[in-house]
Design a protein around this nucleic acid. Structure first.
Lengths: 175, 175
DNA sequence: TATTGATATGATATAACGTATCATATATCG
DNA sequence: CGATATATGATACGTTATATCATATCAATA
């Protein structure tokens, strides 16, 4: 299983990266993830084009949630497309094939930590530092039970929690 | 407990209204709910102003999710304010005091079915007819467990499921 | 390898959603 | 009544997202 860097949150200058909300140090995730995506697309005859690859790479490298226009700005700097549809199309592709998730609460996008595997992720969003962590809640949760009771057929879910991450909570306590 | 009309979904012309996804018929919910909101505000010395009252009334009457600009259009027609901040301010008030919920996935707003009581609602959104149903999932769900594991302090949650409502599923099957 | 149908990108324009700011008015409370 | 807080009016702008049509590239196959 590939694990990406998910958030840096407060430690940018310290070269400390984090998986989940735990401190952590690593480097090669981006390359691995890109390669995995490439393979995945090859297998399914999906076109992993230059723009799509680059957008995923940006999201993996930044390891945080970015808005479509943040991404577009980077593409523009690099001479790859310069209009909104360029970014939105690439993001749509990446989202629909499970390489990227959209964070509804933030109107932003983040690289998936479990690409290729079907899952219904949940996100923990720190309102102080904007760190976003993808978690995999156990199946058969409350939403599914509720849907069954109502006769509603769920096709996809949005599970997002806003609050305070451990690092920011510690800082707050220290003040 | 007051139960509002939640969705009409496909039956507009038939005078059939629905609570949850079950067919249902009723009338006085709007008045009751408005009165309850008024009382709630009086108790807490909140100003239940003309605009706020009217926006809640619109959402209750429509018993579906409406965008801020849909609401603004109605206000404009009635001569109550005509600029975006009018609608957004009223919606912010109603959301922050629990009379209305925002549906992140739709950038839209819907009247709460359980106003005055603290709760973390979940929404079932039909992608065919746009019906939105508010459900109350049991506490202690997967998100909370996940947050505890991560040391994350949840302040509020977004739980939204997109899919097919029973009525639309039936129609699809009938075709 | 030329054709063709599907998929992706370029480019322009516009739609939809949301907020900052400052002035004015209304409510609330001592 | 006067002071303070809260709400509204009004203007302008910022941000997010999509529709549309033209062009280019890819993928399968005759």
């Amino acid at each position: 299983m590939i694990r990406y860097i998910i958030s840096i949150c407060k430690f940018e200058g310290l070269l400390v990266t984090r998986i989940g909300f735990e401190d952590h140090n690593h480097d090669s995730c981006v390359k691995e993830a890109l390669h995995a995506a490439e393979t995945h697309c090859l297998d399914r005859k999906l076109q992993f084009t230059k723009v799509r690859r680059r957008v995923l790479e940006i999201l993996l490298s930044e390891h945080k949630a970015l808005g479509a226009y943040d991404i577009l700005a980077r593409l523009t700097d690099e001479g790859i497309g310069s209009q909104p549809p360029v970014a939105y199309r690439a993001l749509d592709f990446l989202v629909s094939h499970g390489f990227v998730h959209r964070i509804e609460k933030m109107n932003a996008y983040i690289a998936c930590t479990l690409p290729g595997e079907p899952h219904s992720p949940a996100f923990m969003i720190c309102r102080v530092c904007d760190a976003v962590v993808e978690a995999q809640p156990p199946a058969g949760d409350a939403l599914n039970q509720t849907a069954r009771d109502l006769g509603f057929q769920i096709e996809n879910t949005v599970l997002e929690a806003e609050g305070i991450c451990p690092a920011c909570a510690d800082e707050g306590a220290a003040e």
